[in-house]
């Protein structure tokens, strides 16, 4: 059955509290999920009091400060700090987003609660296992499939209007905020592709240069791969890039309907 309760060894315990340095005038609590695979211990919540006057504006700045000044064993992914790499996706105050563009001042309440992405296997602390997610991306063969060779003297042509058809899909950074916010993906991620992968599958369906639209629709028309989407729309609500994966999934369903009806 779908699992609604945490197994005993996953129940989160209270962890340590690291007080703000003396003299800090404006400090904020960051409650961070910690899990160390090398110990037998349950996951725990550590509290770090960060001096906001000595910290950058984003949640990622606070995490980097915590790692450098409080606890160097804290593990999280980050790279570009400008919403283009998708590494620092995590659950902040109950919503999936990327820490690098989440302003500390925009967080509600007196503590910022930081968890790994929901329903992904945790490797350590805030680092989750993306193996299956990326394999699902590979499974839709996300590249142009063509039979006609390109013109000998130039690239394949595309008008600006044709290019605009997948502008939205193209901005996806594969951070998995959407997929890991989707209840259907929680219960059936072994077979359901999830919003991110369907959005990017639609990117090639919508690409005027691609010649395998029917083949792609064949590959997606499946009770689990596509139709597990019940338009819950958590994906659209949570996307840190403001993309609408639900709309792309709707378009795939529309195209499949168009060839039946």
């Amino acid at each position: 059955m779908a699992q609604f309760r945490l197994p005993a060894n996953s129940v989160v315990k209270q962890g340590k509290t690291y007080a703000a340095p003396p003299g800090a005038k404006r400090s904020k609590k960051f409650v961070v999920y910690r899990y160390d695979p090398d110990s037998e211990a349950n996951p725990r919540l550590d509290t770090f009091e960060v001096d906001l006057d000595d910290c950058g504006p984003m949640v990622l700045d606070a995490l980097i400060k915590i790692k450098s000044e409080f606890d160097p064993t804290l593990a999280f992914r980050r790279s570009c700090r400008e919403a283009i790499c998708g590494s620092c996706a995590m659950n902040i105050n109950g919503g999936n987003t990327i820490a690098c563009t989440k302003k500390i001042e925009d967080t509600q309440g007196d503590a910022v609660k930081i968890y790994p992405l929901p329903h992904m296997s945790v490797i350590k602390d805030l680092v989750t296992d993306f193996t299956h997610f990326f394999a699902q991306y590979a499974s839709v063969r996300p590249w142009l499939r063509t039979q006609t060779p390109p013109p000998p003297d130039r690239e394949r042509l595309q008008s600006p209007a044709e290019r605009a058809a997948f502008d939205d899909n193209e901005r996806c950074i594969l951070c998995a905020c959407c997929s890991s916010s989707c209840p259907s993906y929680w219960w059936n991620s072994d077979r359901y592709l999830g919003p991110a992968i369907l959005l990017l599958a639609h990117r090639f369906i919508a690409d005027s240069r691609d010649e395998a639209t029917g083949e792609r629709l064949d590959e997606l028309e499946d009770p689990y791969k596509l139709y597990r989407c019940h338009t819950i729309m958590n994906c659209t609500a949570t996307c840190p890039k403001g993309i609408n994966p639900a709309k792309a999934i709707g378009k795939i369903k529309e195209l499949i309907a168009a060839r039946h009806v």
Binding site: A135, Q136, S139, R191, E219, D222, P223, L226
Partner: peptide, 12 residues
């Protein structure tokens, strides 16, 4: 694992 048994080509 991700490909599994492939598409059922139904569901519409």
């Amino acid at each position: 694992g991700a490909r599994g048994l492939g598409s059922a080509k139904s569901g519409f």
